[in-house]
Design a protein around this nucleic acid. Structure first.
Length: 992
RNA sequence: AGGACCAUAGCUCAGUUGGUUAGAGCGCCACGUUGACAUCGUGGAGGUCGGCGGUUCGAAUCCGCCUGGUCCUACCA
């Protein structure tokens, strides 16, 4: 083995080997355990959040696999409608100078597929770097054939049950992307805005009670004035009671609009009058519905002013009687331009009463960054109420459990106030809505065009027969209908016949489905649904979903609703919610802030110039580049060193406290890289001392186990239970901590050192050496298995060499640590007596080291120590451990002093009641020792003071449990004894 | 406005049902390289557990209020 741990040389080699050996495929044996990966966007590249999440999932999967479960980690990617479409659009524009409209829908979709085949594998390749043991043979895509089938099925069934409907509704419209987006895709940002107070003249000579001829309304959106269809006042408002039912004349437009009484109007705010624009504001939409006002849309899809407005009722029917003329001057103006013009015109007309500056919140599209416009459009919706109910119950009754639990409240709060889900998107890339229209706009929802056409023919035949009495034509249509079917697409013969019959072909809806509609089917569509094959029966419901809290609404909630509806099962039994990975300062990582860390750079390292280039390369705001470059140079003056995947994974795990955001700490990453190095070197030591030696692998030779051997084996059992319990509770930080502590602070710091006197002692028996070698090897082998789910690569690399020595593998490379049994603690190997003996030994060694350090005695200088006040067991322990003391404390001798009075001047340390004396002659600085003793005495005094205070409190003695009081008394005695010894010593030295 | 979460060493974080001499890693100080590891070893310094009040024999831990921070939801016509 190399002297230094070099992860790059082992990691990809092992991954390829595992994959080639089919290690990631479900074993088909044991209890099923399955995790469905949250499918990353096919356009994506691995960021810290993925790396964190994938580490957690892989650790769970590897752990369960070692426990003998039939594990499936389902992998795949999401087609990510808007993101992918935008990316390919930009690419086509850059390479061919064409827009998607130049190409046309079909050609553009072909381009997207082409892109997907060429570049869509980026993120999955990166997943391999993380060591993710996903089953690549089942990789899925949310637009593959199976998904296509599942999506059609779900849509058609929801539609036939009336749970999907189409309607003209106000939606969040993105004027840049020309599509509706869901509430969740809207980001609200605080802004400074203006608040214009306008006068609306009363019509028909009516006056207010105060004698005015106008009402005052205030708005932040003057341009929507053109679409006002009413002015509301509060029904309780005495100032305007007489005006309800009267009209105002809408300025600039001249339309008469009614004054209505509605509780939406707040008497306290402004004048108490509010303009109502049902087609351009969500609140006004509700007011309009209550008050039966018309909807008047004044915007195009670009959010520019229409030359002529459009009027509808709430069923979406056009209202031809309403005068929809708009002032010509505004036609075609962008909304913000129109705003300026309208304010200017209102001012010119003397109708602008005042302008206030206010802070308000504006909705922005999270993809386009454009201001979202509430716009009246035809959209498809899922009626969620009936789906939400069982989804809430599943969490209430514990079928689905959130970890940590408090996320359930967030879930409930959202689910209980759910709006219908707008599922149509005006995009090209995605699952096209399976709905077809005839020339009259009648809709036919079906799994494919043939099915839709058959529905249409049926209806048409019925109509012709019953309404027109034309039996012959009806018959011909019906018999033609019989000929269809079998194929999902209309054959050319069928098309010809239709033409002959004078039946026009149906046209399919142009819209596609929201991405989350298909990813909502992820847990079961990946398992072959609508068929319920063996995979489905084995792996559904999945065991646990690992996801970020930010996606609970987008995805988790919708998965629960759709999965319950269509499979009758929950999608997963547990949801492990993790936090966000932030930078070292707690800032969200974002490209625009220039604080992004790429997990691959942490693994492979990156030099400073490349890192700066990466962070400043393609900024939206290039003026930030300088500051970002400086911050980067300050934080990483040497760039980033390679750390390896295992160290990165261990860092994530050690910071993975449930549900909490993590501030990524480079210091810890370095520390865990060192931890890997420690494991590496400890293994080198073991191999150097065991390879080619007799290490009792076959159990056929007698072994003699030393105290240290029995102790480390006992500690191993404790560590095994700790790690297992922590994993069960998703406390990866605790699992990592327990492992780290055991390996470094016990196995390396003490056990390896304790093994040296045995292995290097010529006198030691073969059985003793064999016992120590066997223990060295077997404990290490168990550590490797225990660590493998967290650090897969280094553990495999070392295990291949160690396991043959431990007798658990042949060493011919055909085996893998991946499928070795998870270490099980065995109670009969716990040895508390050995623990106490080792604690004593450590105490003596530390005591001597302490004196050396405090007294400036060279670490290598052999010492003669004296021991007094020892009990019989102290004497036994000394005899049993002389070689260890000699080696670890560098003692030349340790001699019992029968009469403490005879003690020469010494530096004294206490180990229990026993005193360890390091004679001062020629060694010790008197003043230094006095200072040290003073410090020690002071410390004891404080402890004594605290305990005395407690025991002096009568109610403590009276009310606290007897054992607690006893414990305090014991402490007091110990502290006092220690103080006495120290004080005696001080006096002795002082008297010198 | 409502709600959630957080506040422990210079930094990043642990601290299970109240009883600990409040811990870890990094950083810091001192000493140390012949036999696994300087990506190391040994020893050490460093904390009124955000503030105030309450419950209790006893509070980092439970309750209330306050301050500061993060986030979510709603509203701002």
């Amino acid at each position: 083995m190399d002297k230094t741990y070099q992860p790059e040389q082992i990691e990809s080699r092992w991954y390829e080997r595992w994959e080639a050996d089919g290690r990631f495929v479900p074993s088909g044996e044991g209890k099923p355990f399955s995790i469905m990966i949250p499918p990353p966007n096919v356009t994506g590249s691995l960021h810290m959040g993925h790396a964190f999440q994938d580490t957690i999932m892989d650790t769970l999967i590897r752990w369960k696999r070692m426990q003998g479960h039939n594990t499936l980690w389902q992998v795949g990617t999401d087609h990510a409608g808007i993101a992918t479409q935008m990316l390919v659009e930009r690419k086509v524009a850059a390479e061919e100078g064409k827009s998607r409209h130049d190409l046309g829908r079909e050609a553009f979709i072909d381009k997207v597929w082409e892109w997907k085949h060429e570049s869509g594998g980026h993120i999955t390749r990166q997943l391999r770097r993380m060591g993710a043991s996903v089953d690549w043979s089942r990789e899925r895509f949310t637009m593959d054939d199976g998904f296509y089938k599942a999506v059609q099925e779900v849509f058609v069934r929801l539609y036939s049950e009336g749970l999907i409907y189409r309607g003209k509704r106000l939606v969040n419209w993105d004027p840049t992307l020309h599509t509706a987006i869901s509430d969740l895709e809207v980001e609200n940002r605080d802004q400074q805005g203006q608040f214009w107070h306008f006068r609306y003249p009363l019509a028909d000579g009516v006056k207010t009670d105060a004698g005015l001829d106008h009402l005052v309304v205030a708005t932040t959106r003057p341009e929507t004035l053109l679409g006002d269809t009413g002015v509301a006042v509060n029904p309780e408002d005495p100032r305007y009671a007489s005006l309800v039912g009267k009209f105002v004349e809408l300025p600039l437009v001249g339309r008469r609009i009614p004054i209505v009484a509605d509780e939406h109007a707040d008497m306290e705010k402004g004048s108490g009058c509010v303009k109502i624009t049902p087609a351009h504001d969500f609140n006004d939409y509700e007011v309009g519905r209550r008050q039966n006002l018309p909807l008047i849309n004044v915007f195009t899809q670009d959010a520019a002013i229409l030359p002529r407005a459009e009027a509808f009722d709430f069923q979406g029917r056009p209202l031809p009687d309403i005068d929809t003329t708009l002032p010509e001057a505004y036609a075609g103006l962008d909304r913000f331009e129109a705003r300026k013009r309208i304010v200017a015109d209102m001012e010119a007309a003397g109708l602008l009463e005042q302008v206030e500056t206010v802070s308000n919140t504006l909705p922005y599209g999270d993809r386009s960054g454009d201001v979202i416009e509430p716009l009246l459009t035809d959209q498809w919706f899922v009626a969620v109420e009936s789906l939400a109910k069982p989804a809430i119950e599943a969490v209430e009754n514990g079928d689905i459990e959130f970890v940590p639990k408090n996320y359930e409240n967030m879930y409930f709060a959202w689910m209980r106030d759910l709006q219908d889900w707008c599922i149509s998107r005006q995009l090209w890339w995605g699952h096209r809505i399976p709905a077809w229209y005839d020339i009259d706009g009648n809709v036919f929802v079906a799994r494919n065009e043939v099915e839709a056409t058959r529905q249409y023919l049926q209806e048409l035949a019925d109509f012709i027969e019953h309404e027109q009495g034309d039996f012959d034509t009806a018959m011909r249509l019906r018999s033609f209908d019989q000929l269809l079917g079998g194929t999902p697409e209309l054959t050319s013969d069928a098309l010809t016949t239709m033409e002959k019959l004078g039946v026009p072909r149906l046209t399919q809806d142009d819209d596609v489905l929201d991405t989350w509609f298909s990813s909502g089917l992820w847990t079961f569509a990946t398992l072959g649904w609508p068929e319920r094959g063996e995979d489905f029966r084995t792996f559904h419901p999945s065991s646990v979903l690992v996801t970020g809290f930010d996606i609970i609404f987008f995805w988790v909630a919708r998965m629960i609703m759709l999965t319950l509806k269509f499979t009758g099962e929950v999608p997963f039994k547990q949801v492990y919610v993790h936090g966000l990975v932030r930078d070292g300062q707690g800032q969200k990582m974002s490209k625009s802030k220039g604080n992004v860390l790429d997990p691959i750079d942490l693994i492979d390292g990156i030099d400073l110039e490349n890192l700066v280039e990466k962070r400043t390369g393609s900024l939206m705001q290039p003026q930030k580049a300088k500051a970002i470059a400086k911050a980067t140079r300050d934080e990483f003056p040497e760039g980033i060193e390679p750390h390896g995947t295992d160290a990165l994974r261990f860092t994530f795990l050690s910071q993975a406290t449930t549900g909490r955001d993590i501030k990524f700490d480079m210091g810890r990453l370095d520390g865990y890289r060192n931890f890997c190095n420690k494991l590496w070197n400890a293994s080198r030591y073991v191999l150097m001392n065991a390879e080619g030696q007799d290490c009792g692998a076959n159990d056929d030779e007698p072994v003699e186990l030393s105290l240290a051997d029995r102790w480390i084996v006992s500690e191993l059992q404790r560590t095994e239970s700790q790690v297992t319990r922590a994993m069960q509770e998703y406390r990866f930080d605790q699992a990592a901590q327990a492992l780290y502590d055991f390996l470094w602070n016990e196995y390396c710091d003490w056990y390896l050192e304790l093994s040296k006197p045995v292995l290097w002692d010529e006198q030691a028996s073969a059985a003793a050496k064999r016992g120590t070698r066997r223990t060295l090897v077997r404990v290490l082998e168990a550590i490797l298995r225990l660590a493998h789910p967290m650090m897969p690569f280094i553990t495999e690399e070392i295990w291949q060499r160690v396991a043959p020595l431990a007798g658990t593998a042949t060493g011919d490379g055909s085996e893998s640590i991946m499928v070795q049994p998870w270490p099980q603690a065995e109670d009969d190997k716990l040895d508390e007596a050995a623990g106490r003996d080792i604690a004593w030994l450590k105490g003596v060694i530390v005591a001597v080291r302490n004196v050396r350090a405090e007294m400036n005695i060279a670490p290598g200088k052999p010492l003669e120590v004296l021991l007094t006040k020892g009990s019989a067991s102290d004497r036994e322990r000394l005899e049993a451990n002389r070689p260890f003391l000699a080696k670890l404390a560098k003692l030349e001798s340790a001699v019992w002093l029968d009469d403490p009075e005879q003690a020469p001047l010494s530096a004294t340390q206490l180990v229990g009641d026993m005193e360890v004396l390091v004679p001062m002659a020629g060694l010790i600085d008197k003043e230094a020792e006095l200072a040290r003793l003073a410090k020690e005495i002071d410390k004891q005094d404080k402890l004594i003071g605290a305990v005395e205070k407690k025991l002096g409190n009568d109610s403590f003695v009276a009310k606290a449990p007897a054992e607690v009081v006893e414990k305090e008394r014991g402490k007091l005695a110990d502290f006092q004894a220690a103080r006495r010894v120290l004080a005696e010593q001080r006096d002795k030295i002082a008297a010198l």
